[in-house]
Simulated scan of single mutants.
Amino acid sequence: MGNFSTGTVYLVFVIFSLLVAKQSEGLRVFTIINECKETIWPAITPGEQFEGGGFALKSGQSRVFTAPVGWSGRIWGRTGCNFDQDGNGTCETGSCGSTLKCGASGKPPATLAEFTLASADYYDVSLVDGYNLPVVVTPVNGNSNGGGNCTVAGCDGDLRLNCPKELAVKFNGRTVACRSACDVFDTDQYCCRGLYGNPVTCQPTYYSKIFKDACPGAYSYAYDDPTSIFICSDADYIITFCSKRKEKVCAYHGNRLICSGASIINSIFSWIIPMFSTVISWWLWI
C-alpha cells in the first residue's frame, strides 16, 4: 500500500462522518430552500446547529443542517437586508436586532416555522406574529405512528397582496409585510388574553379569517390549534420560502436530488456508501 495524501484522508473522514451522522439516532435533517425571486436571510433561534442563527440565501439556493432531538425553536425569513462584512446591518422585515446571526427572536411581523423535536415532533407555521413571506414545511421520511397529522404545513398565499391597509407595513411604497391585529390594536380580543385568554372565548376575528383564507395550513390566531398543529415521528424537514403546499419540493443532498415523498436518509446512503467503498478501495490500492 502506497502513501496517501492529506486530501484523501480528509475525504475519507468527511464521508465517514456523514455516515455516522446519518446513522445516529435522534438527528433531524433540515433543508432550507429559497424559491423567492430575491435573496432572503433565513434566521433560526436557537441557532447553534444552523450556522449561528442566520445567513444569506440567494434565489434558488438551499442549505442543509442537522438538529438533535430536544431542539425546540423557530425559523423565519428576513427580507430587504443589508449587512456589512462583519455581519452588522438592518432588514426591512424580520430583524433580530442589527446582526446577521440571530440570538433573539425576530421583530414582528414575520411568518414563523416552529418546531419541537422529540420522540414525536411537533411543528407548525404561525401567523400569530404577522406575515412577511410564504413558508411551507414539508416532512419527509416520517410517519404518523403517534397518531399525528404528518403532512405539509404552512402558508403559501401572499398576504402582502391583500393585506388590510391598517395592518400593512410599507417600505418605499411597497407592502413588505402584514401585521397581526393584536400587534396593531393591542386589545384582549385580538390578543387572546384576559377574558379572551382561552379557546372558548377567543374565536376567529375578521382579520384572522383573512389570514386563514390565504393560509389554511397555518396558525391564524393563538387558539387555531385543530387545523394548524402537525405531528411526525422520525421525519426530516424541508422548509421552503415562496413555495406551494401541494408542490413537490426537492433538495440536493450531495449530488442527489431528493424530493418530498422520498426517503432522504435512504437516498443519501445510496450515494454515500458506494462512494465510501470506492474511496477505501482506492486508498488501499495506492
Results as ranks from 00 to 15, higher is better:
Asn149Ala: 03
Ala110Trp: 00
Tyr196Arg: 11
Gly142Thr: 04
Asn132Trp: 13
Cys96Glu: 08
Pro216Ile: 07
Gly97Leu: 04
Tyr223Arg: 02
Arg193Thr: 14
Ser144Glu: 05
Leu161Ala: 07
Lys101Gln: 02
Ser208Ile: 04
Gly173Asp: 05
Cys192Asn: 04
Ala153Arg: 00
Tyr206Cys: 01
Thr116Ser: 13
Asp188Gly: 12
Asn172Ile: 02
Arg160Pro: 06
Gly89Asn: 03
Leu167Ile: 04
Asn198Gly: 04
Gly148Ala: 03
Val176Ser: 10
Pro204Lys: 10
Cys102Ser: 11
Cys191Asn: 04
Cys102Phe: 07
Gly217Phe: 15
Ser144Phe: 08
Asn172Pro: 00
Thr205Ile: 09
Cys215Lys: 04
Asp129Ala: 04
Ser126Gln: 03
Arg193Met: 14
Asp129Leu: 11
Gly173Cys: 02
Ser180Phe: 09
Asp121Gln: 15
Asn172Met: 06
Gln189Asp: 02
Tyr223Pro: 05
Val176Thr: 13
Gly89Thr: 07
Gln203His: 09
Gly197Asp: 12
Lys212Ser: 12
Phe171Ala: 14
Cys163Trp: 10
Gly217Trp: 14
Pro164Ser: 01
Thr175Phe: 06
Gly147Asp: 01
Tyr221Lys: 02
Val125Cys: 02
Thr201Ile: 08
Leu133Ala: 12
Tyr123Pro: 13
Gly194Leu: 00
Ser95Cys: 00
Phe230Met: 03
Gly147Met: 01
Arg174Pro: 14
Ser126Cys: 08
Pro199Ala: 12
Gly148Glu: 00
Ala113Phe: 06
Glu166Asp: 13
Lys101Cys: 01
Arg193Trp: 11
Ser228Arg: 09
Tyr219Gln: 13
Lys165Pro: 00
Gly146Tyr: 09
Ala181Asp: 10
Cys202Thr: 08
Lys101Glu: 00
Cys155Val: 10
Val135Leu: 11
Val200Thr: 09
Cys155Asp: 04
Gln189Ala: 11
Gly89Cys: 03
Cys91Lys: 13
Ala222Asp: 03
Gly106His: 00
Thr201His: 11
Ala118Asp: 15
Gln203Asp: 10
Thr116Val: 12
Tyr221His: 11
Leu117Asp: 07
Asn198Trp: 15
Tyr196Lys: 06
Pro109Met: 01
Val184Trp: 03
Thr138Val: 13
Lys170Val: 03
Leu112Thr: 06
Ala218Cys: 08
Ile229Gly: 12
Gly197Glu: 14
Ala120Leu: 04
Tyr207His: 09
Cys191Ala: 13
Tyr190Arg: 07
